[in-house]
Design a protein around this nucleic acid. Sequence first.
DNA 1: TTGTAGGCGTTATCAT
DNA 2: ATGATAACGCCTACAA
Lengths: 359, 359
Amino acid sequence: MPACPIRRPDRTGDGAQMTPQRTKATIFDVARRAGVSIKTVSRVVNGEPNVRERTRDKVLRSVRELRYLPNAAARELGGRRSRVIGLIYENAQEFSYLNDVFSGALRICEPAGYTLLLRPLTLPDPAIIEHIRQFALNARVEGFVLPAPLGDVAQVPGLLREMRIPFAAITPREPVPDEINILCNDEAASAALTELLIEQGHGAIGFIKGHPDHGASAKRFAGYRKALRKHRLPHAERLVRQGYFDFDSGRAAASELLDLREPPSAILASNDDMAAGVIFEARERGLSVPGDLSIAGFDDTRFSSRIWPPLTTVRQPIVKMAETATNLLIDKLNGNSAAALEAPFECEVVIRESTAALG
Amino acid sequence: MPACPIRRPDRTGDGAQMTPQRTKATIFDVARRAGVSIKTVSRVVNGEPNVRERTRDKVLRSVRELRYLPNAAARELGGRRSRVIGLIYENAQEFSYLNDVFSGALRICEPAGYTLLLRPLTLPDPAIIEHIRQFALNARVEGFVLPAPLGDVAQVPGLLREMRIPFAAITPREPVPDEINILCNDEAASAALTELLIEQGHGAIGFIKGHPDHGASAKRFAGYRKALRKHRLPHAERLVRQGYFDFDSGRAAASELLDLREPPSAILASNDDMAAGVIFEARERGLSVPGDLSIAGFDDTRFSSRIWPPLTTVRQPIVKMAETATNLLIDKLNGNSAAALEAPFECEVVIRESTAALG
DNA sequence: TTGTAGGCGTTATCAT
DNA sequence: ATGATAACGCCTACAA
């Protein structure tokens, strides 16, 4: 047994605690004040079992009195756990979606003692894998939240699996096996929106698809077709255009649709950015919305109710979805039983003035 | 002198480095491979002086071969430096501004080895100070970036000074003494925009002020008045309304202005959100823009060019401003001489279709 | 239920 | 210019 002298013979952060402590209190200070060992303090602070009720109280009181805050660096170094969750996202588009994801994730991380780190990515990017790898390494990320469409960028789940980093994918095209998947019923919502237009008398309904990389795109298209089938309306390829979730692609698609010999009386765009592009194009042509053309989108972004006319759209409970994703991820990181996958989240159709009955 | 046995007699992360190392390489591994002490490795890695050129090369080679990555937790624990920069922001409004601030700050932080941590705040909030304090403590924030309007929320600079945490304020109303201040000439830009309208023949130009908490609000209003004076136009209080940078306040202000017996032929809003509100209100009244009413704003948000009609506005180089803020902050944290405050950044007037010569 | 010893990987101090 | 060693504050393993 080594003959080391006892270290830290008197490690008090603050001789007498007069003013707000000069030096931050450490676990030793708390232990001393509570008259217990540092291990007991550690147990209390980390909610471990095997501490008598009275002991726990004593410790907690000292913690409060000393305003003790565990040192995260020491925690990580000793415990080999960083408590960092990474949120990587595609930087290109609509940020309100990401802001919601971020808010939801943060709301869970903070009280749970986790740090949420953001890392924007630009797609497509051949080096994306290396960027993520570096980020994960540099930031010692324990788990990732993957908002759409990152759960569908094929190499990403592969990389994370290889690095053995768990993740929660929000609305991936296909649920990733063995991982956390947060889904919503936007196919049903898309069908409902389409039916709304049908019931308003629209027979020729144009559709602008979303970015093929997004899982949501296929689902929204599927809902559209399902509604047409249900109402025995013919599905006309000529009324469908490919878009990429951005304003310009929506505008371009609208331009093509409106140039048709028999243009649609309503256009359903796979997100609000594209719908805004449709409105823009309609205005340019002097068309009245919804008088000459009804328009609807998806997402209910901040601007959807602020453009003219306000947009009929579909709202996802993104904040809740992000909260759930983060919660399940933290459970997993903490070794808690992986909670059963919940049912898909419900989307809500928001009816505003950009759609109207066919006059 | 304590008679401790020498620790770590053979700390090699990876016996022989065949496959990608099982255990991550440590400073000891690098030192051993380079045939130097760990302190020398530390010197090289941290760019400290007093290392012979040849020694440095040897070390760097080992670093590369071992893919050595310093352990941030150990670094923080040993060096009492977290290398964390906090970005607190007001969550309420336009997010494109913040996205730009975030991008700029991150672009600087990452290569500099700093971690950027975001913390949304809701204003007004009586507990804001406590939230920031907790955040700073929990996350061990070394320095803050304060995008507008946080540099003007009086208690915030006070708190940070009390905590001795340096910060960089982006466009505060008044430069904060002893701290980093990033300014732009939006007063001049506002004057230029007003002059543009005057030259287009508008005599009665309405103005919607921004949120009084934002430093920019006063400057934009000052520029407006300056331009009126220069062209010897009377300044009429009746044409000025108070707004709060949000869509609804812009719309309400526009409603009042348009209700005037002699309404203005042009309205200048202190930001684009409010300008969008003005457009909305004009549409509701069946007014043509810019035929009946010219409208201009500030900020050039993502939507400014996408609403109808596209908005004449002023663009700030926000990304650059954020980059500069972060750069100066990091310099300060690293103890480098505080670079002299640069000249204000230049704003740019962007002319689009929402303004036109008075018919 | 509680405590002791040792290690985590770095930086800081002081010697050489 | 370089090196030996003691912090740094916590967690894990093991002991009592």
